[in-house]
Design a protein around this nucleic acid. Structure first.
Length: 760
DNA sequence: AGCACGCCGACT
DNA sequence: GTCGGCGTGCTC
């Protein structure tokens, strides 16, 4: 406010203008531009009744007064001390695109994730909704207010009279084509009537498409076991309390979490409220959708492969309260439910809930804030919760609900850790060690199916010793060093520490190895050669590019048309295959040794999730994990199915190093075509941050700048730095102090990632 | 992000 | 003398 007065002194205004300002309505508008605050505009009389917060407007901006589209975020009485304001040019929406809760939520996202409110709004409102896809402006007519007296005055020709008669039967405007049809005439008589002033023309927005939801056959609720029933009772008491609470449902794979979600949702639907269920994009399969569709009458699905008009239509349906349950990926957290009753996030630990472009929000945190505002519960479910969620639960900030047993009392499959350090087959360059090789053979003989899991795509080569099994770590950052072949150096991607590539392992003195693992394609060839009788199917993002191929492949496997399924991440989750008797993790090390703070957590999650893929029938099943580091806690605890043991150990570790969730990390990424320029810019920003932090917040630590773990990406050189601080608030204060003063070269782009989920 | 304003070099 | 190079900073 004070800066505004500084520019245009209140005293400069003539007195009559001050008086006029007293009851002036003004609009606060945000743009998708790097502006810090909303700008204030006057509202011309013609828009006074029309304009509401949540609508988009066109407004003049800058000295040239170019017209820019922005979002009206508030309409209020102007304060008495007001300077001359520019007027809103145009109002683009007839109804708000967002209500007050959503406006507040998007504002919070901007603050929390360090980006502009306008940027958040632009990304949160689907393009199809903004463009009103699936609707068209239709030329329509209605009788004018003076119609009666004009008709009195003179008799009308026959055709024109018919048109008037037709219009008298409607209270609403009639579309031109429809009117011609009903009056059995051409456009002539209508034009004539318009000239006489008897009918008025207007353009009405009308829906073009509007496919109805197919009705799935409704099925009965399942009978819950006592563990599920107890959990449900706790959730229901939270639902009935009418207050917000976050509940973490820790349930092993196969414990029947989905049924508990459904029954919780049933309760809130019975109050006439709506639920939002967030699932990882990859789980948004026809099976998942069917599970909800056959239990609720109206289920909307929001996924990334929808057309603009489909999405717009769904959005409308949701906003009108026609929908009981919204199932969708990350962005469904913004579904405009008029009376929200519950948000469920399944597989809460999945990294896909973090958006990897601006605004880089985490759907869990957005959901938490939204649920707090709407005073409804948030239910997080996972067999392997994030340590962030787990810590909150153990501190009683959130409520912990546990379902430690599988339904039907199936035991979790035994997990065998295979130490491959001295394996003869691996020594000869094979990916399948002796134990795994023989186990596959046996499983196939017994007519079982096999899943082989390999995790490699997009991972960096790490410096790691094959004989003692430890990664070579940075002395300051506790993350594994990355091998740079061209420079013959081992580099830390957190702090830029580097050493010449070691000839020998610093721990056991044997020859250190730079490590490049096997890819899925190479593994496929090897498996096919080793088991020529088996049918092998490879699933990775390369072979599953076209839509639907994913489901198709899984169906093939389910029907037993394939014996061995091998692939990356995407086969680790979701579906049960009763006939799978063996799961092999080819190389747990490639994940464990990633230069990432969460490498250990990821490894645990991965093994736990793949273990959940087997042992789902009486045939039992086992899991084999190949590693050279059998003592790593993530592997040890995962083999015992001991999440709590792992969490306790890992949290201890994080506490010692001051890593999240005991601190917050914000990452700033720089990219550009010129390596020295990017590097220099990143260093400058890091130094500026350090200088400001010195007296503003001595507890904040600046790490780097350093090359990003993926140093080159699509021709860009990438560097990053990290800000570690005790709270988000303090990172914000520090960043805002520095950000304004930065002048980046045009050729270097910068992105800010609060709570990064990976540091690639 | 765009766009106006500014303050220095090569032109009719 | 002027036209225009693009660096700087502001936009209710």
């Amino acid at each position: 406010m004070s800066d505004q007065q500084g520019l245009f002194e209140f005293a400069d205004l003539p007195e009559w203008e001050q008086a006029a300002a007293e009851d002036l309505q003004v609009a606060e508008v945000v743009f998708n531009l790097p502006l810090e605050k909303p700008y204030t505009y006057s509202i011309p009389d013609e828009f006074r009744e029309l304009l509401k917060a949540g609508m988009r407007v066109k407004a003049p901006l800058g000295r040239g007064n170019r017209t820019v589209v922005g979002y009206c975020v508030n309409v209020r009485q102007a304060e008495s001390a007001i300077r001359k304001l520019k007027p809103i040019h145009e109002v683009l929406d007839s109804e708000p695109l967002l209500n007050d809760v959503m406006l507040k939520l998007t504002h919070w996202i901007g603050e929390r994730y360090l980006c502009g409110w306008g940027q958040v709004l632009d990304s949160v409102i689907p393009a199809g909704v903004r463009r009103k896809s699936g609707t068209r402006l239709v030329q329509s007519f209605e009788l004018s207010s003076k119609a009666d007296q004009l008709i009195e005055a003179g008799k009308l020709p026959k055709k024109q009279q018919t048109v008037v008669d037709v219009l008298r039967e409607f209270t609403e405007p009639v579309a031109a084509t429809r009117l011609c049809e009903l009056a059995e005439c051409g456009p002539g008589p209508i034009t004539a009537l318009r000239k006489k002033g008897i009918v008025t023309a207007l353009r009405i927005r009308s829906e073009v498409s509007g496919e109805m939801l197919e009705d799935a056959v409704q099925t009965e609720d399942l009978i819950l076991n006592s563990q599920q029933q107890q959990t449900l009772d706790k959730i229901l008491s939270a639902v009935r309390s009418g207050e917000h609470s976050t509940m973490l449902l820790h349930g092993v794979t196969g414990s029947g979490k989905t049924e508990v979600y459904i029954r919780s949702i049933r309760e809130i639907v019975s109050y006439g409220r709506q639920a939002i269920v967030l699932v990882p994009e990859i789980s948004l399969t026809p099976q998942t959708i069917r599970r909800f569709r056959c239990r609720f009458k109206s289920v909307a699905v929001l996924h990334s492969h929808m057309t603009d008009s489909e999405r717009h239509w769904q959005w409308q349906q949701i906003a009108q309260g026609q929908i009981e349950v919204v199932v969708g990926a990350r962005s469904a957290v913004f579904a405009p439910t008029p009376n929200l009753g519950l948000i469920v996030i399944d597989e809460e630990h999945e990294p896909t809930f973090k958006q990897d472009s601006t605004p880089r929000y985490h759907a869990r945190e957005v959901a938490r804030y939204r649920c707090m505002q709407e005073r409804v519960p948030l239910l997080l479910g996972s067999a392997t919760p994030t340590l962030e969620s787990w810590l909150r639960a153990t501190r009683r900030q959130d409520t912990l609900l546990s379902m430690p047993d599988r339904v039907a009392e199936l035991p979790l499959p035994p997990v065998v850790v295979v130490d491959t350090r001295n394996d003869p087959r691996i020594g000869k360059g094979s990916s399948l060690g002796r134990a795994l090789f023989t186990s596959i053979g046996r499983a196939l003989n017994e007519k079982g199916q096999v899943i082989l899991f390999l995790n490699l795509r997009g991972y960096s080569p790490t410096v790691w010793c094959r004989s003692c099994g430890t990664g070579v770590k940075c002395p300051d950052c506790d993350i594994t060093l990355t091998w740079h072949r061209d420079r013959a150096e081992a580099v830390c991607h957190s702090c830029d520490y580097s050493i010449p590539a070691p000839e020998k392992c610093p721990t056991c003195e044997s020859a250190a190895v730079r490590y490049f693992g096997t890819g899925t394609q190479k593994l496929e060839a090897e498996v096919a050669a080793a088991f020529p009788a088996a049918r092998v199917l490879r699933m990775d993002s390369d072979s599953m590019r076209k839509p639907g191929s994913h489901d198709e492949a899984l169906e093939k496997f389910r029907h037993g048309e394939v014996e061995i399924l091998l692939g990356t991440q995407m086969i680790a989750k979701g579906l049960d295959f009763p006939n799978v008797t063996l799961v092999g993790v080819i190389d747990a090390d490639s994940m464990l040794n990633q230069p990432d703070m969460r490498a250990s957590e990821r490894t645990f999650q991965l093994i736990a999730q793949v273990a959940g893929r087997t042992g789902r029938s009486s045939r039992g099943g086992r899991v084999l994990v190949q590693t050279t580091n059998a003592d790593a806690p993530s592997i040890k605890y995962a083999s015992k199915h001991d999440f709590m043991g792992f969490a306790y150990h890992e949290l201890q570790q994080r506490k010692e190093t001051g890593a999240p969730p005991f601190s917050t990390v914000t990452r700033v990424i720089f990219r550009g075509m010129s390596e020295p320029q990017v590097c220099e810019t990143a260093r400058e920003v890091a130094n500026k941050l350090r200088t400001v932090a010195k007296d503003l917040d001595p507890e904040a630590r600046i790490l780097g700048a350093a090359p990003a773990p993926i140093t080159r990406l699509r021709g860009y050189y990438r560097f990053h730095l990290q800000i570690a601080a005790p709270s988000h608030e303090r990172v914000k204060l520090l960043w805002q102090r520095v950000e304004g003063k930065l002048k980046l070269p045009d050729s270097v782009e910068m992105a800010v990632d609060v709570d990064p989920i990976n540091s690639r």
